[in-house]
Design a protein around this nucleic acid. Structure first.
Length: 762
DNA sequence: GTAGGGTTAG
């Protein structure tokens, strides 16, 4: 029955047949029983007759008739015929009786192939009967006792059965006892498959090693490669994972023998290595296959290009493109998309445009037609470097090409581009055009517009747009809420931020940790620590975790409110959830203790920080210097200032100078202050408005008018804008001494630059 | 291929 069903050409049967045909190549013809050849021959009346005879109870067998059917001529008593008779019996018990009959009527050793064939049929039948697990191995033992060798197919079947039954020990016994010429590729493939299924990767690799020996009769074929790489790629399979070097080693050894993973598996291997950041391994795999002359599709190269692109390795990308060119692997639209995208992401838009031009071969005709993705990458790239107008031109070019109409992403990129240069009106125009163009806006369109408006002070309009778009069916998400919450916190509208947060929680909008972090930050900066703590609880209830930055934010907030026990609680919690305090954590604490006069504790913290392997930064020094200044110990502050530059090579910045300069002004030490101003100039640290404010106050105290004029000129020269404090100090002082003219000239110095600034921002 | 936050010193 099964033979008939095999000839039915359903797809799965065709596949089965293909597999069988493939393994045929490696069969020793004398042993192999082909199910393919001359099927009809085994349905001839004599076979049916024999089967009918053998189906009757053994004591009813018509022995004469049987003998005449089976042994009348030598052509009749072939292994193939015997096999097909045995296989059509309805139980292994009946087949076994037949086996005994043949054994009694056969001459040894000439008739051994007959016995082997009948035994294969016995095994096949037994493997489909209840309690096959026990039967199959027992049958094997008895065949061994009778010195009947296994056919290749019997061996394969047996290995499969023992594997399925989980009988690993028996499996290896059977394999080791096989005749050497029976251990061919087909059988070894089955063993390897079975060992993989049992999770014994080590033993499977051992078998593979033997297969890979030179001149092995079981040299690997396509099935071997398929089995091995299927296992490697399916990481959920039982048994240990393959080591990277094992994978690369197998590819290389298979390649040497001229067998290769198929395109799909090769690409998967490369993708997986790249995803794990092991790009060199991916490279080795592809290189091995290419060098050994295996077929490599462009998809596999694209996988590697993606990996190389992610690590910005343009050198290797070019190298790969050269190899592809050499091996005549034609780049496709994906290849170009990868190159163009990576170049754009690295701000190398002109080179990206060059690649884009290269895609077109003959004039006006593309060798590879660019697609929407490529256009969008380029438009985004152009916008990110401030070339919005060129981006718009590309969008027009898209319209003139078939099947390449601008889509939502195209518009999103351009809208973001105009946002980034502050041209919100043009962003909104594009948004209108989008509607006319029947390009549907997405939540990203919404978020991009909301972000642009918020960043340019139009928070309420942004909120309005959000509501309108919700009505039009574009629902906001966690990103929308983050943007709005951050913006409202930024203008100190904490209540509105909290309101939005509650709205988000009560709507069924998806949330993530970032929304919570944003609000925690806003609340902490506003000093609303109880609210901040409440949001932290909600974050945890929602199943999210805190990160080091958020802990720092809270610690800073608690310190400023002088709630040290709360800050300490946070530190304890960090330890519990295994988040190590970082430099900012230490800086925050050191700053607090410096300011409150506990410089001893501040130094202890500094020591601990160093012990943890964290290097002090300019901020660390700044906090300590500020601490000593506040505690009226400017000498020690200066000591630290000097040591930071000499010993540890942390260059001071404007803030450091401002701390010292402000302190010197308050102590009215004008000489030292001026010498620091000089020091700044030597070190190339630019003073800012805060610096000049302290300086002018000090100069006024000491009535050093000419010095003030000098620095007023310098301030104009450096385009450092005065603020209301500068104006207050200078106005009071200069009008008191009748030098309003100088003040007027000072302000005139800014007029040009102020106008220029406005021109730029237009 | 497109969107969000980010702490510490003046």
């Amino acid at each position: 029955m099964r033979i008939v069903s095999l000839s039915v050409s359903t797809q799965s049967n065709r596949l089965l047949n293909l597999l069988r045909l493939q393994s045929l190549k490696h069969f020793s013809p004398s042993r192999h029983l082909s199910l393919q050849s001359n099927l009809h021959q085994y349905h001839e009346p004599s076979i049916t007759q024999a089967v009918e005879l053998l189906q009757t109870p053994e004591n009813n067998w018509d022995l004469d008739q049987l003998r005449s059917i089976l042994y009348s001529d030598s052509e009749n008593s072939s292994p193939k015929r015997f096999f097909h008779i045995a296989r059509r019996l309805d139980s292994s018990a009946k087949a076994l009786k037949f086996f005994d009959y043949v054994r009694e009527n056969s001459k040894c050793p000439e008739d051994l192939p007959l016995l082997s064939s009948v035994f294969q049929a016995v095994l096949e039948l037994a493997s489909r009967e209840p309690s096959w697990e026990k039967k199959v191995f027992q049958l094997y033992i008895s065949s061994q006792e009778q010195n009947v060798p296994l056919t290749i197919n019997a061996a394969t079947l047996l290995l499969g059965c023992l594997g399925r039954a989980g009988m690993k020990e028996e499996l290896l016994i059977v394999f080791k006892a096989l005749d050497p010429d029976c251990k061919n590729t087909h059988v070894c493939n089955r063993l390897v498959t079975v060992l993989f299924n049992l999770g014994d990767v080590g033993e499977a690799l051992h078998v593979l090693d033997e297969m890979l020996e030179p001149n092995s009769i079981s040299s690997p074929n396509d099935t071997t490669v398929d089995v091995v790489f299927s296992k490697i790629l399916r990481r959920d399979r039982p048994g240990r994972r393959f080591k990277d070097e094992e994978i690369v080693g197998l590819v290389s050894k298979f390649s040497e023998q001229g067998v290769f993973p198929d395109t799909f598996k090769l690409t998967q291997l490369i993708t997986n290595f790249c995803r794990d950041g092991k790009i060199n391994r991916a490279w080795d795999v592809l290189e091995n296959v290419i060098k050994s002359g295996g077929y490599v599709a462009v998809a596999s190269c694209n996988a590697l290009l993606t990996g190389l692109g992610r690590s910005n390795d343009f050198k290797k990308m070019n190298q790969l493109m050269a190899i592809m060119n050499d091996k005549d692997i034609k780049p496709d639209v994906i290849t170009y998309a990868i190159l163009i995208n990576r170049l754009c992401k690295s701000w190398r838009v002109d080179e990206a445009m060059e690649v884009f031009d290269k895609m077109s071969g003959e004039v006006g005709k593309y060798t590879v037609e660019p697609d929407v993705v490529i256009y969008n990458s380029l438009i985004d790239g152009l916008c990110k470097v401030g070339r919005q107008e060129e981006g718009l031109k590309l969008m027009e070019q898209m319209r003139s090409q078939n099947f390449c109409a601008p889509n939502t992403v195209t518009y999103n990129c351009l809208i973001d581009g105009f946002n980034k240069v502050g041209e919100i009106e043009r962003s909104l125009e594009l948004f209108d055009q989008m509607k006319k163009d029947a390009v549907p806006p997405s939540v990203i369109t919404l978020n991009t517009l909301v972000d642009g408006m918020c960043r340019h002070g139009r928070i309420n309009s942004a909120f309005q747009l959000f509501n309108e778009m919700q009505k039009d069916g574009v629902k906001g998400n966690a990103v929308t809420y983050t943007t709005l919450i951050t913006a409202y916190c930024g203008v100190n509208n904490i209540n509105k931020a909290m309101e939005l947060f509650d709205q988000m929680l009560s709507s069924r909008c998806s949330t993530d940790a970032i929304v919570y972090y944003s609000l925690i930050n806003g609340l902490s900066l506003a000093g609303r620590m109880d609210d901040a703590s409440m949001v932290v609880s909600k974050l945890k209830e929602a199943g999210f975790g805190m990160d080091v930055v958020s802990y720092n934010v809270l610690i800073s907030g608690f310190c400023k409110k002088n709630k040290l026990e709360k800050a300490h609680e946070m530190l304890k919690e960090m330890e519990e959830v295994n988040i190590k305090p970082d430099t900012v954590t230490y800086n925050t604490l050191i700053s607090h203790f410096s300011k409150t006069g506990s410089l001893g504790i501040a130094h202890k913290l500094l020591k601990k920080m160093l012990k943890e392997g964290l290097l002090p930064t300019v901020v660390t020094y700044g906090t300590l210097i500020h601490g000593y200044c506040l505690n009226d110990n400017i000498e020690e502050a200066m000591n630290i200032f000097r040591s930071m530059t000499s010993a540890l090579e942390v260059p001071p910045n404007t803030v450091i100078y401002n701390i010292l300069i402000d302190s010197l002004y308050k102590r009215n030490e004008v000489e030292k202050l001026l010498s620091l101003m000089n020091d700044m100039q030597i070190k190339g640290v630019k003073p800012n408005t805060t610096t000049y404010n302290a300086l002018f106050k000090c100069l006024r105290e000491n009535n050093l008018l000419n010095k003030a004029f000098e620095f007023m000129d310098q301030m104009v020269e450096q385009a450092c804008n005065p603020d209301y404090i500068t104006m207050e100090v200078l106005t009071e002082w200069l009008s008191a001494v009748g030098q309003v003219d100088k003040l007027r000239k000072f302000l005139q110095g800014y007029e040009v630059s102020v106008q220029e600034k406005e021109k730029y921002s237009e």
